[in-house]
């Protein structure tokens, strides 16, 4: 028996909006500690890891570990039917091949349930090794989204370079080149507006912008984004979900032929 009641149902709606274009089908894993997902995009270039810890739910019951295969496009269709202020409850019986999403309006005057068919998905969890990152940049998520969007109108790839000067996002294309430098800035009114750069050593890596733009769909989940870089490792683009967990995107770099 599985029953997860999320008062802030809009969080789940935002999570699906953030990952549905990157991943078609995925297994949601539910255990006593939380609700999680790990999945790759179809070309095996990027990986998404989601964690929603049990303590973030108003009610969390998961009698035994279960893995529920879902088509994220279909799940998103169902969650779009929930209001932004609705409470969302996920329910599944042991051995069932369906999951039910229950939507309750805040004043309890409307209750809907949507039952979705589960699917068998063959997927293996990848082991993500602990890594020491050469540079970690924390910046406003909207700023990062803006930079990725702007650069993708010029080129297809972004070079992210961290030096003591700051973090530089560069691209080039047929029409020209673009460089955007963000310097560390902690003298802001609100902590979420700060740009904080922790650098152990300079690093410069090249990534496909279309994936970065896909990751930026998680912007509504968090005011800030953390970008962790090490040479010859996938970048980690992390959006923390307040009090609950995170969505992390891993993207393999492009290298010289």
């Amino acid at each position: 028996m599985l029953e997860l009641r999320l008062v802030q149902g809009s969080l789940l709606k935002k999570v699906l909006e953030a990952i549905k274009d990157l991943v078609n089908d995925a297994n949601f894993d539910c255990s006593a500690t939380g609700f999680s997902l790990q999945a790759m995009d179809s070309s095996h270039v990027a990986l998404v890891a989601l964690l929603l810890r049990n303590e973030g739910f108003e009610h969390y019951r998961c009698d035994r570990n279960i893995s529920m295969g879902m088509n994220l496009g279909n799940m998103n269709k169902m969650l779009k039917c929930a209001g932004n202020d609705d409470i969302i409850t996920l329910k599944a019986d042991d051995g069932s091949d369906t999951v039910t999403f229950m939507f309750e309006s805040p004043n309890q005057d409307k209750i809907a349930d949507f039952e979705m068919k589960l699917m068998d998905i063959d997927s293996e969890h990848l082991g993500i090794p602990e890594a020491e990152y050469h540079a970690i940049v924390r910046m406003p998520s909207a700023e990062f989204a803006r930079i990725c969007k702007d650069l993708s109108s010029i080129g297809d790839t972004v070079v992210i370079s961290v030096t003591k000067e700051g973090v530089k996002f560069s691209t080039k294309g047929d029409i020209g080149t673009a460089n955007i430098v963000c310097r560390q800035n902690t003298t802001v009114d609100k902590p979420e507006e700060a740009t904080v750069i922790e650098m152990k050593e300079p690093v410069s890596l090249t990534f496909a912008l279309r994936y970065m733009n896909s990751f930026a769909k998680a912007t509504p989940l968090s005011h800030t984004v953390t970008i962790s870089l090490s040479s010859e490792l996938p970048v980690v683009v992390e959006y923390k979900i307040e009090d609950m967990g995170y969505v992390r995107f891993y993207l393999a770099p492009k290298i010289e032929e």
């Binding site: 095996h44 990848l126 790839t157 996938p234 393999a252 492009k254 290298i255």
Partner: peptide
């Protein structure tokens, strides 16, 4: 020309 690496080159299957 740069080549896109796979995430599977970094993260191992169990």
């Amino acid at each position: 020309m740069k080549r896109q690496q796979s995430i599977l080159s970094f993260f191992q299957k169990p």
